[in-house]
Design a protein around this nucleic acid. Structure first.
Length: 508
RNA sequence: GGCCUCAUCGUCUAAUGGUUAGGACGCCAGGUUUUCAUCCUGGCAAUAGGGGUUCGAUUCCCCUUGAGGCUACCA
């Protein structure tokens, strides 16, 4: 019977969720769920200076929105206050200071760690010199040789100190990474890492090892940047006499110039992408594929399909450039697949933001340009016009603006199709106008209008384009748009006739 | 500088000793369509370089080159 798989996502509350972290959480989550394990959220806030107010709440909210549900960790209640749950105490490191203190004392007692009283100033000078001499900057271990009495004296004098790991000077530390394979590092190249800072907070290294052990994490999963410090962690597990968990390091997401994905070269916040109108499904699916493949040619996966299919053997060792071209395509795929009501719900905020509508309550909306009141059902029809061509939700305002306009603005030449003359266009529009005038409002439906106009084309021995192009332009004012039948249905008889009259006027 | 890691089309990737090096996005061309989009068909496009090992290397080994990460009392 193998040990229960327990995986944690352990972000620092520095303000927002990075898209790279989104991929890491996704992999964490999928790995845990695929193996029937536990998925846990732990907040690593051991750096007071970098803490950003509200970021824990924000993080929890976004994981929740993404559907990446965890069973232990930090939850946010309705008053927006955090609380913890689980068998292993608080999952916020700043609330666990006494625990780390206890373990650090144990380390010192057993001679695996030591007090260091060196000032930051001395350390800085030391490193500068090392650099000048082309040496690797490393702590020179000055305090490692302090006698018990000396330490005692300095402690009594209240000299500020940190606690450092006593790294063996000989030997090799190695481990088997689940993604990278065997990693070997000579101990002499490992620095005597600070474990406890002078403010009484642990460093990442200590806190994560202690917590991963205490929370019974079976697989330590994190980004590649942690690969070089893993031997330090192994040394800690050994010093404590603890079982060493499995490690899996995931590659970084990259800028187009292949450096670590950063703010300077584009958006990195998950919320930025959500705001732009990317669907969570598309975003998840996209980051999934940035470093994992199913070994088949499938590419579109729902969350539950991902859980069923994900395994570490499909995870790559090469960092992937975060290039959103494919994300745009995937987003379109998901938009087209989406239920129309759902899609419309998501589009409404963008229509409001584009200042086309205003919510008046009771799922009624007011059209700002005309003052008309419309309902949700009507908005569904409008969204349906664009469902096939939309790449991002944020495009909806611009692309359906023509529906809401009181008066279209276009060049009259646009009404003329191919080799037609202005006169032809005018005649044809007149024919259409006459025909549509005689139709009842209730028959203003896409398929009926299509029949009627097809008949009109045939009767007058015209080409379809000679009728449909001028009509479409008259109704939309656009070079590219949905078909005139669909637009006419949405617009209704009165507006259709108005717009045709307006076009006829232009062609005079 | 030291340590660690990585290297297939522009991008995401498949192929772990034998394939015309496959797919997807993007791009180009054609078809469908009144237009745009969708959809369909086709095309362009890659094993960083050099040595080995082998009958045979994208694949295994070495070197070079390139790229990235780490090198904090940040995570």
């Amino acid at each position: 019977m193998s040990k229960k798989i327990r995986v944690r996502f352990a972000p620092s509350p520095t303000g927002y969720l990075h898209v790279g972290s989104l991929r890491t959480v996704l992999y964490d989550y999928l790995f845990a769920k695929h193996n029937g394990g536990d998925f846990i959220l732990r907040i690593e806030d051991t750096d007071k200076a970098r803490y950003v107010e509200g970021s824990i709440e924000n993080l929890v909210k976004i994981l929740d929105f993404m559907g990446l549900e965890y069973s232990e960790g930090v939850f946010v209640n309705q008053d927006n206050k955090t609380f913890q749950k689980g068998d292993f105490g608080p999952y916020i490191q700043s609330l666990r200071l006494d625990i780390y203190q206890k373990y650090v004392d144990e380390l010192i007692k057993n001679d695996y760690a030591y007090y260091c009283f060196c000032s930051q100033e001395r350390l800085g000078k030391m490193r500068k010199n090392q650099r000048l001499q082309k040496l690797a900057p490393m702590y020179d271990r000055k305090c490692r040789g302090l006698s018990k009495d000396e330490v005692q004296k300095l402690l009594e004098e209240k000299t500020p100190y940190v606690v450092r790991l006593k790294v063996p000077r000989k030997g090799v530390t190695e481990f088997e990474d689940l993604i990278y394979g065997k990693i070997k590092i000579e101990n002499k190249t490992i620095d005597d890492q600070v474990l406890m800072k002078s403010d009484g907070f642990p460093t990442y290294h200590l806190a994560s090892v202690v917590d991963d052990h205490l929370m019974e994490i079976s697989h330590v999963t994190r980004a590649e940047e942690w690969l070089p410090s893993t031997p330090k962690h192994i040394l800690l597990y050994k010093a404590f006499g603890w079982e060493i968990p499995q490690f899996a390091h995931f590659t970084l997401l990259l800028n187009p110039d292949k450096s670590k994905l950063s703010k300077r070269q584009g958006d990195v916040k998950v919320e930025d992408y959500l705001k732009k109108g990317y669907l969570k499904e598309a975003l998840l699916n996209f980051v999934l594929l940035l470093g994992w493949n199913p070994k088949t040619e499938e590419e579109v996966f729902s969350l539950s399909e991902m859980i069923a299919r994900f395994d570490l053997s499909g995870v790559n060792k090469t960092g992937a450039i975060f290039n959103t071209e494919k994300l745009d395509w995937l987003n379109g795929v998901y938009i087209r697949k989406m239920d129309l009501s759902e899609l419309t719900k998501l589009c409404v905020p963008y229509l409001i933001e584009a200042e086309l509508l205003e919510e008046v309550g009771g799922s009624k909306y007011q059209v700002l340009s005309t003052g008309e009141e419309v309902d949700f059902e009507y908005l569904k029809k409008i969204v349906a016009l664009e469902q096939e061509r939309m790449k991002k939700l944020s495009e909806i305002g611009e692309s359906v603006k023509f529906i809401f306009s009181e008066k279209l603005d276009y060049e009259k030449e646009l009404l003329i199709w191919k080799k037609m003359t202005a006169g032809d266009a005018k005649n044809n529009l007149q024919l259409i106008f006459n025909e549509l005038s005689s139709i009842e409002e209730k028959d203003f439906q896409s398929n009926k209008l299509q029949e009627i106009l097809d008949r009109l084309v045939e009767k007058n021995n015209l080409k379809r384009g000679e009728v449909l192009w001028p009509l479409r332009v008259a109704l939309t004012g656009l070079k590219g748009s949905p078909s005139p039948f669909e637009v006419a249905e949405v617009l209704g008889k009165e507006k259709v006739l108005e717009r045709i009259e307006f076009a006829l006027e232009l062609l005079k």
